[in-house]
């Protein structure tokens, strides 16, 4: 296969053009890399809900790729008024202040009401029952202190690259948070979004 027209017999047209193309692609990839390098952070992302943007539309219950949504209601006790007539627990106008199912907002019966002392009651979320529908959150946010709010549970979340709920969220409440700050603690105020 010797070719006396070229000084270097190992250099063929194919090899030469291949080398150029390889070089160009390499430069291109490196260019993208350098451009992206300015926009890099050390920690991985996780999805989380900004409770201050959430409008409790109910998509969190249905849109998650998991059958049992990764979004659950959490209770920030430090914000709670411990009301007897809790607007997150009872229907707006309950027949009586009794814990019968007909008086409760939660369709899954996932809120546990415990008497603390007159006239205060403490409300706990049974996470196994909670579907993340946000009905109680709406009641608490609209008429109460807003101590109930929806959060992505990071032990359940599969951390899809494109969160299926985020794609459907009407209020743009889903955000990517760094892995070392996986939750929004509502009583500590507004968390800075993203990095």
């Amino acid at each position: 296969m010797s070719d006396d027209r070229t000084a270097n017999p190992a250099l063929t047209r194919r090899g030469f053009l291949g080398g150029i193309a390889r070089g160009l692609l390499g430069v291109g990839v490196a260019g993208v890399g350098v451009a992206a390098a300015g926009r890099v952070r050390a920690k991985d992302d996780l999805w989380q809900i900004d409770p201050f943007k959430c409008i409790q539309c109910g998509n969190c219950r249905t849109a998650c790729v998991l059958e049992d949504s990764a979004v659950k209601c959490v209770h920030d006790f430090a914000m709670c008024g411990y009301c007897d007539l809790c607007t997150g627990f009872f229907h707006p106008e309950p027949n009586r202040l009794e814990t019968g199912a007909e008086n409760q907002l939660c369709p899954a019966g996932a809120i546990i009401r415990r008497f603390v002392e007159e006239p205060y009651f403490e409300y706990h979320i049974d996470e196994l029952l909670c579907t993340g529908c946000g009905i109680c959150v709406k009641g608490c946010t609209d008429y109460g202190n807003g101590s109930l709010y929806l959060q992505v549970r990071q032990d359940r979340c599969l951390n899809c690259n494109q969160c299926a709920i985020a794609a459907q969220c009407p209020s743009d409440a889903f955000m990517r948070v760094p892995a070392d700050r996986p939750y929004v603690v509502k009583h500590l105020g507004r968390q800075k979004e993203g990095g």
């Binding site: 411990y82 403490e122 008429y143 109460g144 990071q154």
Partner: peptide, 23 residues
């Protein structure tokens, strides 16, 4: 704070915020 958090006379402690670890 439509309903200010109460001062419990029975010394009731607020439960911890339930934060699960990462998967």
């Amino acid at each position: 704070e439509r309903f200010p958090p109460p001062d419990f006379y029975s010394g009731h402690q607020l439960p911890e915020l339930d934060q699960r670890p990462l998967r």
